[in-house]
Design a protein around this nucleic acid. Structure first.
Lengths: 125, 125, 125, 125
DNA sequence: GTGGTCTAGACCACC
DNA sequence: GTGGTCTAGACCACC
């Protein structure tokens, strides 16, 4: 299910968390859903089980998931949280995008036009 | 002049090239300008001179700069090239941005609205 | 396999490239062939691995070879390229030869006769 | 008069000797001619006077020139010597040429044809 | 002063 | 095992 191309810009556990957040944001995962077991995910992503452990623990600390002994790890039933995560990720992506475009000397008008062009050209495909 | 926060997503020499391309795109560097000497830039960026050498040599092979022995390295006088570079970098940034937003489940309308909001809020600041 | 007597008329990496081109021209190397690994060649030629790296990288940028991570460096499968290289090297050698002979005051007839003599005497050996 | 582009394939004094031999071969210098004074040549070639000294001394040892105290250095009046030198230089050039062409896999026929082509194309220019 | 080459060797990613 | 990056530093050529 989860399939990630890791790069080395961030620790792997952090990229795993990001991917799960993205899945939540686009509703591929929903509150109450069960995550793969740590062992299973470690195998399918070909990473060390400790790395998954770290990702799941961090998400627990964030209040994103809850682990029930002997049953597994589940997305917390908290719709507010899910929408907050989506908001926060979008905010970061947009922020990065705008500042990158500005570092190329693009003004607001130029930035908007480029996005519009991209979107319409993608839609046409 | 050039000041770069390296991350480890890419080789250092490659990040140096990117930064010089960005400087060109926003006209902080112009065709004919002299780049810092290899030694000077190595000192200011606190990297090995060979790493700068690699960056400068790659840019030479790309046709971006030309090196005159004993005189230094200069941005090639080729306005077409400069505008091509800007175009290419913008294209890549927009591409990445749109696909990231789509991976969060945003549709075209949502993406555009987020950019508009960001831009107007930034403008107000 | 490759065995080179370096002189100091050119950088070592450049002489390595020339030798590989020569091997291609006389079909001692063929498209698809694997070159020695960088470490291996460095040892057999008694030069630093970085020097081989430089030679291999330059050939990659020239489109002469392609490098597959973890597998090695291979002559590109492009027969046109190979014949172009041979043509180009012959052209340069003949050019140098004729101008050297002319700088000794030899006319066309004399130049040709000298080559003929050399060739028939070599053939007889 | 003498004007030389030095490379670093050989010591400078040796390249000077070669150039004088070439001048002899093409009769730009003749037996009995006076060579430039050592100081003068050092200046015009922008090399150290000791280097010229070494070149002249070696040519003296070869029997090519003779130095008359207070009068200068002269090409020895020995026509046989001059023709021997030309012969020897041609021999070396042809030798090198043929072996370079062979190292590219050219056979005798191919070598001759390339020289013929070059000569006729040069003649036409 | 400028850039160019080369060595020696560490450390990393991918296989 | 393979290649890729980077450092540290020597030495050279050209100006």
């Amino acid at each position: 299910m989860l399939d990630i191309d890791f790069d080395n810009s961030k620790p792997i556990y952090s990229q795993i968390i990001d991917e799960i957040k993205r899945a939540l944001a686009r509703k591929a995962l929903k509150p109450g859903d069960k995550l793969p077991s740590q062992r299973e995910l470690a195998q399918s992503l070909k990473v060390n089980p400790n790395t998954i452990q770290r990702a799941y623990r961090d998400m627990e600390l964030l209040g994103l998931v809850e682990t029930l002994r002997g049953q597994g790890t589940f997305i917390r039933k908290d719709d507010q949280l899910v929408s907050d995560i989506k908001e926060e990720m979008m905010e970061e992506i947009v922020e990065t995008f705008v500042s990158q475009m500005q570092s190329l000397g693009c003004d607001s008008k130029k930035i908007l036009r480029q996005v519009e062009e991209k979107i319409t050209s993608t839609a046409r495909q």
